[in-house]
């Protein structure tokens, strides 16, 4: 195995890691505000990818602008879904909220995935490149699309960090995640933040979907594994911290790509790469059975 191959794998791992982090940050955000594990997050990511694709194909919009359109569309769409389906979570009359959140988001995933098969067809679609061509550094070749995906992903995460730390909305979001009651006392309308957080998480997932589309192409079931990977990252990455998620995303992206590179049987390497991430998740859950989201795990009951 050559050094160049290894370097290519490391670069690819970093890009995928950033994408994973974007998805995981959304899961964390939704969990910390709504207190549910969103089983439909991977499907929002899938929808984001398709949305960008159709905006490019039929709207003639350049790919990066299409990503922004997809984010906006998913932001609004997810807020509507939240209003329609998740409001019982905030009512005292609802019992067994864990079960409700679980079945509803799982059912939502089923609905979105099967609707996607009908609406978009079962066959993979590939939008045009952000910037066609490749970059060559020595013997290492990386496509421009991967560089764009990585770069825009990092920019979005930096923007998110700025938003959370420096803006009033971000601070309010943080306050709601720590204590719904205390936030209500200082005059924050927690209800509004449920919609906002769900939409915001979905928009980040949509960005991730739009960014990977030119690299891996789109398919209705593309969200299943990234959804599980998001949980891995949330555990690995400091339990609800955005910064931790980024590092964990990179770690997972790298270790998966290196796993593929070093796996003795290349025909199976790709399949078991996915299993590897899942296995990490299961082992972590065995040792931290309640610890997925650490301190932020406040139940609403």
């Amino acid at each position: 195995m050559s050094w160049d191959y290894l370097l290519v794998q490391v670069t690819n791992g970093a890009v995928i890691g950033v994408i994973y982090a974007l998805i995981a940050v959304g899961v964390t955000l939704i969990f910390s505000i709504l207190k549910i594990v969103n089983f439909a997050h991977g499907d929002l990511y899938m929808l984001g990818g398709y949305c960008a694709y159709y905006v490019i194909e039929y709207g003639g919009v350049p790919p990066l602008a299409a990503m922004v359109v997809a984010m906006a569309a998913l932001f609004l769409g997810a807020m509507i879904l939240e209003r329609l389906m998740l409001t019982p979570l905030y009512s005292d009359a609802t019992e067994r909220k864990d079960e409700y959140g679980l079945i509803v988001t799982f059912g939502l995933a089923y609905f979105l995935r099967n609707t996607a098969v009908i609406a978009f067809g079962p066959f993979p679609l590939k939008p045009p490149s952000f910037i066609p061509g490749v970059q060559r550094i020595g013997n290492v070749i990386v496509t421009n699309d991967r560089l764009v995906a990585g770069g825009v992903g990092v920019a979005l995460i930096v923007g998110l960090l700025y938003f959370m730390k420096r803006t009033i909305w971000g601070q309010a979001l943080d306050a709601v995640s720590q204590s719904r009651d205390a936030a209500a006392i200082v005059g924050i309308n927690a209800q509004r933040f449920n919609s906002f957080a769900f939409g915001f998480g979905a928009a980040l997932a949509a960005a991730a979907g739009a960014l990977v589309a030119p690299i891996f192409s789109l398919a209705p079931d593309m969200g299943v594994l990234p959804n599980i990977h998001a949980y891995v990252i949330v555990i690995l990455g400091g339990m609800g911290s955005v910064g931790g998620s980024i590092i964990a995303g990179l770690l997972l992206g790298e270790s998966e790509n290196l796993f593929t590179a070093f796996f003795p049987d290349p025909t199976r390497a790709f399949a078991y790469t996915n299993a590897f991430g899942v296995l990490v998740l299961m082992v972590f859950l065995i040792f931290r059975p309640q610890g997925l989201f650490g301190r932020r795990h406040l139940r609403m009951e």
Binding site: I36, V37, F39, D98, E99, G101, L102, F106, V224, L225, I228, Y231, R268, A271, Y272, N274, A275, V278, L279, L281, M282, L285, I286, P289, Q290, L292
Partner: peptide, 26 residues
């Protein structure tokens, strides 16, 4: 998964089922 509850158990068993599927296909 004795100590897992609610969504954690769901995530764990989801992972198990994916591993079974991947292994059988591979």
């Amino acid at each position: 998964c004795l100590r897992m509850s609610g969504p954690y158990l769901a995530i764990f068993t989801l992972g198990f089922s994916e591993i079974v599927r991947i292994t059988i296909s591979t």
